[in-house]
């Protein structure tokens, strides 16, 4: 017969397991189940996150711009931004040209960048080690809602998975739960960009027969309804063709540096 202490232990562990499983079930069955907790936690913590982030940026700015290379660092930053902007612009133009060639007689190209967008700052990262999520300082009060695309000058970074009143969570494309329908800029072969929880993604379902090279650009295909067509996702960094199997193993490096995100653009459409 179990002792009284053992019974208490079993009851405690059972209670913990039941409570956690109930939370998981609630979360999986009802996607909105965690909204309240998310909003409250975000509301309490966001001022502190803002404070820490701004302090770090100030210190970092001081070191970079004043103590070491006063003007060079600043000019370098501007030039990097300019290069990113030009690459992005070039990609948009190439994509626009290709699209217009194909669809010239059917319809006018709808330029997504002319639509409304909100600039937001990244104020925090995921509280755990494993999810690739960032917190931005704009929420429903600024027109942000769930499943909106989030980009930088360099390309796609992810989608909004929870929009609170003043903060939102953005699931990055490298997270293991992220999947973005994509196509190659040159040969127009499609695939799905899937996160692996690390700094790179994989491009799945690209047939073995497709001609894919390292350095090829991958764009969003517009399918799925979240990411507009033609946004750059990244470049192929590794290709491996297996003798057996239908698909290639393609590794993709995101075009944006996801470990150093500061300002992002949430596309409101």
């Amino acid at each position: 017969m179990p002792k009284k202490g053992n019974k208490k232990n079993i009851a405690l562990v059972s209670a913990i397991l039941l409570f956690s499983l109930a939370l998981m079930t609630l979360n999986v069955k009802q996607e909105k189940g965690t909204d309240f907790l998310d909003s409250v936690a975000g509301f309490i913590l966001s001022p502190f996150q803002n404070f820490f982030t701004q302090s770090i940026q100030s210190v970092s700015d001081s070191i970079n711009h004043y103590f070491f290379l006063v003007d060079v660092a600043r000019e370098n930053d501007q030039l990097k931004l300019e290069v990113q902007r030009l690459i992005s612009e070039k990609n948009q133009l190439v994509e626009r040209l290709a699209s217009q060639k194909r669809l010239a007689k059917l319809m006018a190209y709808d330029d997504g960048w002319e639509k409304k967008a909100v600039v937001a700052s990244v104020i925090g990262k995921d509280a755990t080690q494993w999810s690739k999520v960032v917190v931005i300082n704009k929420g429903t009060q600024h027109g942000i809602k769930d499943h909106l695309a989030v980009v930088t000058d360099a390309g796609v970074i992810g989608q909004v998975i929870h929009a609170g009143p003043n903060t939102s969570k953005v699931l990055l494309i490298v997270d293991g739960r992220s999947a973005v329908d994509a196509l190659f800029q040159d040969n127009r072969i499609s695939g799905v960009v899937v996160g692996m929880g690390e700094n790179e993604c994989q491009l799945k379902f690209v047939p073995n027969t497709a001609d894919v090279k390292v350095g090829d650009s991958v764009l969003s295909s517009g399918l799925g309804g979240i990411f507009p067509k033609g946004l750059i996702i990244g470049k192929v960094s590794q290709v491996s063709k297996k003798k057996q199997g239908l698909f290639q193993e393609i590794t993709l490096t995101p075009s944006s540096d996801l470990s150093r995100l500061e300002e992002v653009l949430v596309l409101l459409f």
């Binding site: 405690l12 562990v13 913990i16 397991l17 409570f19 956690s20 499983l21 109930a22 939370l23 998981m24 609630l26 979360n27 999986v28 189940g33 965690t34 907790l37 998310d38 409250v40 936690a41 975000g42 913590l45 925090g124 995921d126 509280a127 755990t128 494993w130 999810s131 690739k132 999520v133 917190v135 998975i161 929870h162 969570k169 699931l171 997270d175």
Partner: peptide, 24 residues
């Protein structure tokens, strides 16, 4: 664990489970 779950993009309850069992 609950607060950590709320501040992450993962499944609610995962950290609640691990952290409470570790504490126990």
């Amino acid at each position: 664990g609950l607060v950590q779950d709320s501040l992450s993009g993962g499944l609610l309850g995962v950290n609640t489970l691990s952290k409470s069992l570790i504490a126990y």
